[in-house]
Every structure is written in C-alpha cells, then in structure tokens.
Design a protein around this nucleic acid. Sequence first.
RNA 1: GCCGGUGUAGCUCAGGUGGUUAGAGCGACGGUCUCAUAAUCCGUAGGUCGUAGGUUCGACUCCUACCGCCGGCACCA
Length: 647
Amino acid sequence: MKYYVTVPIYYVNAAPHIGHFYTTMVADALKRFKTMHGYDVVLTTGSDENSVNVERAAAARGMSPGDYSAIIAEEFQRTWRDTGLGVDRFFRTSDPRHHATVQWLFQRCQENGHIHKGSYTGQYCFSCNLYVNDAKAGDPCPDCGRPTETVTEENYFFKLSAFQDKLLALYDEQPDFMQPEIRRNEVRSFVKEGLKDLSITRSNLTWGIPVPVEGKHIFYVWFDALVTYLTAVRDENLWPADLHLIGKEIIRFHAIYWPAFLMAAGLPLPKRIFAHGWLLFENDKMSKSRGNIVRATPIQQVIGIDALRYFLLREVPFGADGSFSYDALVGRYNADLANGLGNLVSRTLSMIHQYRGGAVPSSQNDAGAEVAAKAQEVLATFSAAFEAFEFSRALESVWSLLGVVDKFIVKQAPWTLVKKTDEASQQTLDTTLYTAAEVVRLATVLLAPVLPESARKIWAQLGMNAPLESVRIDQLAWGQLAAGQKTLTPEPVFPRIDAKIAIPKMIELESVEKARQDALLGKAKKEEEAPSNIAPLEPVITIDDFGKVDLRVGRVLTAEKVKGSDKLLHLTVDIAEPQPRTIVAGIAEDYQPEPLIGRKVVIVANLQPRKLRGITSQGMIVAASLPDGPAFLAGFLEDAPIGARLK
RNA sequence: GCCGGUGUAGCUCAGGUGGUUAGAGCGACGGUCUCAUAAUCCGUAGGUCGUAGGUUCGACUCCUACCGCCGGCACCA
C-alpha cells in the first residue's frame, strides 16, 4: 500500500522558518503514522525558483538565479535533515526533469483543446506573481501593497472558465477533497462567482520553463510549481497524491487551478487537500517587518525538536490559526512531557528495578483491568483522531491514559506492597508494575510519529528489541509486553526546563540563527536593519514629471464611513476652492472619521476623478504605509495655509 | 456590504437531536504519599455560558436583533 503526501515546494525568497517547519513536520508525523500502519509512504517537497523575483533578488546580490536558488534550496534541505524530517524527494523547479513534465502537461492540455493564445495588458505584481484586475498603473498590489507594474503580453491562456461546473461537482461529490470544511465552502463560493481564463505564460522573463516548440514564453509560476507534485513521482506510479498538505494562503491554486489543469490533461486528481492555518507569534502575524519570525533549530537546540513537534500538534487545533509563544512552549513541555510522560516512564522503570531486579514481571491478577480497558479505548480514539487530522485530540487521549495510570499507581501503592510478604500483595505488585510498563509501551508506540527521538529513547529503556519504527500501530493490543523483559536504568527523557534560563537561551540562539541565514543570503548589515518589506523605489523621473502632480494642503470638513465598505471614508476637503472636494479614501481601517474633521492633510488635486461605491472621488489623500501595515496621513507641523501647493 | 465561522472559569478548550448542583487540562492555592524529573495523588478555586429580547413547563444548547473577533468575497482609484 502506498501513501503519497506532499507539502508545498517553498519559495526561495526567504530562508526556512517555523511556518515551513510546521507544514513539513505535520507531513512527517503523518508519514510516520502511516508507515506504522504498513504503508509505503513518500513525502515530497522542493524549492520554487522560477520567478522574476528570484531573478531580481539574485541580480541584487550579483549572483545568477540558479546559484542564488541553490543556496536557499540547500538551506531548506539542511533544515529538514537537522530537524529529522523524513523528506523523500526534494525537487527544484530548475531540475530539467521537471521542465519536461511541465511541458508534457502543457501539451496534453493543448491537445485536449484547453489552451488558447490571447493578449493581455494589465497590472502585475511581480512580488506576488499576480495579475491585478481593474488596477491602474502604479496601483498597489492588493496582497502585498507594493506597486504593480504595467505589462502587455501575448500569452497562452488556460481555459479555466470551462471547468467551473466540473469543479463545483468535485467539491460536492467529494466533500473530503478540500478540508477543513470552512475552506471547502470558501473555495466553492469563489468558483461559483465565476472563473476567468488563466494566463499561464509570461514573455517578460528568461529564468523559468519555456513553452514547448516556440520557446519564447515562460510558464507562469503556478503552472510550474504545482506540477512538481507530478514530477517528483513521475516514474514511480505514485500519482495521484493521497494528500496535499498546504497553508491556507495557497488554497486557490491547489483547490481550483490544480484540479482543473489535471482534468484538462486527463489525469487523476489528488485525493485530498488539507489547508492548515497560520502560526502567530503571541497572537500577532509573524512577519519580517515585525521582526518576530521564529525558527525551529534554535528551539531544537534548547529543548529538543520533539518538544516543538509536540507543542505544535497538541496546542494548535489543526486547521485553525495557532499561537506560538515561548511561555506556552515551555509550559506544555514541563506539564505534559516532563511531569506527565517523562515522569511516568521514570517512576515505572525505577520501581521495576528496585522491586523486581529490572525484569518486567508478569500480570498475576485483574488489578489492572480498568487501566487495560482505558488503554484499549485510547488505542481506538487516538488512531481515529489522527486519521482525521485531529492531532490535538489524539494526543489528549494519550495523556488521559497517562493520568489514569498515575492514579492507578498511587492507588495500588507498590511501595507499600513491596513491604508485604503475602502472596496476594506480591501478585498485585507484579500486576501493577506490568500494567504501568504496558501503558508506557503502548503510549510510546502511539507517540512515536509525534515524538520520534524521545519515543526511541523510551523504547530502548523499556528494553524492547524490535525497532520502534517497525511496530504496527494497527496491531497494537493490551498485553503484548513480554514478561521477563530486561529494562534499562531510567534516565530522564524530558528533564524539567527552567523557563527563566531556557527562554532567553532560545531567544539568543534565534538571533544567532537569523544572523547566520542573513549572511547566507548575502545581506549587508545595514540592509538587515531596515524592514525588508519596504517597497522598492520607482524608476527615476524628471522634475517635469513631478510637476504634473498637483499636491495641495487641505482641511477635512466632514468625514464619514462609506456604507457597504470596510475600508472607505467619505471626506469633504477644503483646498481653498469655491466648493470643497469630495474625496473617498481607503483609510477607514486606520482612522475613525470624527477625529479627522479639521485636520490638515495633503491632497492630490489633479487626479482623474473616479467613482467608488457610487461616490465620485475628486482626488486622493496622501498617506504613508508599509505593505502590511497601517496608513499614516501626511500632515504639517506648522500651520500651512489651505490650498497651498506642495512642491 | 455579502457569505461563513466564532464569542463558555486567569489561559487553552469540551459541551449530537433543549431538562437534576455547566465540565476537562494548564496555571494558582491548601494538603498528601514517597516509586519518580521539588514529579504523582487529593481537595479548593465558584465562570451574568458576548448583550438584549423571544419560543418553551424548562435553554449554554432553538429563534430574532445587536455587539466583538476571525476568515473569504467585494473593496482599498
């Protein structure tokens, strides 16, 4: 039985961080879980290298796109190696085999009549690789806020519009195709609104995969990147994938474009797509500009990679956004891993050593029956939850078992039994120790996919001979632990962590790691200090060009929210004309209307009027912003006269 | 604005088809055992179950409106 799971190929615009780790680690845990059910699992990922952005970033560092990408691709692979993630194939989009697959897929679509040529003039965001509909020259990209650039191209189009009904049928007939359900609904309603044909080539780049035969056009990044899922296993009869694991930001590409491409080429569709949420840092979005990005390896160095794996799978309900914080991480570690699992292993093995010479006794009576029943129940609960991607619930069920055993041990009080010489007490002591050890064994197997390193240690301490990885979870049952087995002297698997020491250490190592990655990317020190999402400078203009822009000092007379819009404010502004100007400004998320009244602002006074939500905006208000940040209105420290022109 | 989700103890969350004193884990506090990693175990902590109405013999659980938060779409020229 095969199981093919993918995580995205990661874009080489950034070095790996905890978000990349999250997706990949979940895939790794699933892989281990499936392997322990007898599946041959293949996990693939790679690097997404073909884009103008990469070309530009490489050029800025005086490198070729290939060399630049290679450095980052290696950095990703190194991270997966260091953190023990079982990635089977790492595919670079620059790989010639991949080029062949993309071209092959294109030709199949073409043969089936789903490709046509057309021309396009519009605004394009090079940062996001996204065409922006209805935008004008220089308008900001709706996703990243950087200015869009005008492009006119003759391109190949994919007839996406022809797949609307088929896609809707897919979502309805195969509810598991897109999960969680929330995401499926979003995708469905998006498709229902209507699909436009998709331009799948570009003619303005050189770094990428050329269209077959003619060779002038380069494939659009998503026609390229998604196809690595095919390329990675092309000769292995593994397609279709059993699971695409993705982050919620790339749902549209996976749940709409990708199945449409495959349908057009007459290929089987992936069985399921699961989109997880984002990891926030203490409830804030992680971003370069906030400087709150966390990496996996510094955490690994201080408390081990298993602690991070456990935290992410236990603390965050899979699918929803989750919050990472060092406090919560250490809290989980101490409460669940050190005090819970680690301590149970420790006390169990220690008693077996002191009371029974380090050999697991056999169960003599039914003193442990309730624990056994609970364990059987947890075996079922755990696997069902894990299959359903409810990792948090799965882990919770194991800990509920650990809690039962801890209570059981106290109730039986082996330390009292050992002092009694009667047969019954000795039998109960044996049974108690066996019961505890059997729970440790079962829990260790169940937890192996989540805590691979630690489980292996516990397994060894228990004296188990068979390799843990080869144990079949679906064949686990109570009572399989062999009596007489020799255990090792326990050593703490999860030593308690002092948050006061560990957290500063992690933070310190984090900054070391960041510096190392920055150096790797050839970032200069000065550049590093500036927020890296500052919009790139526009091309040089002449003084005459600037002279065309008529900026005026104005005073806000009235301000109110525009009905039906989250972002628009309806302002009237006095710029010393007979009539005040009506201006619609997209600042409602950052400014309340009332406090604006009376405020002096800067207006672009000669902008072509435009209707917004039924109101004609006669100009534009000047504000500063970072791509994902709030707007700041321009103003004056002195009392600038209304109507004065800015030059 | 439209669509969807959500709002339960300090924190993270459970609470099919309405019905005795609303639950768990963590944290906090008190106590205990001593096998154990100052761990375990026991007990306590008493939260208007977002707000206001409504249906009902009875609602956290159903309905309506409103508020807050999250997401998608629209939109941010």
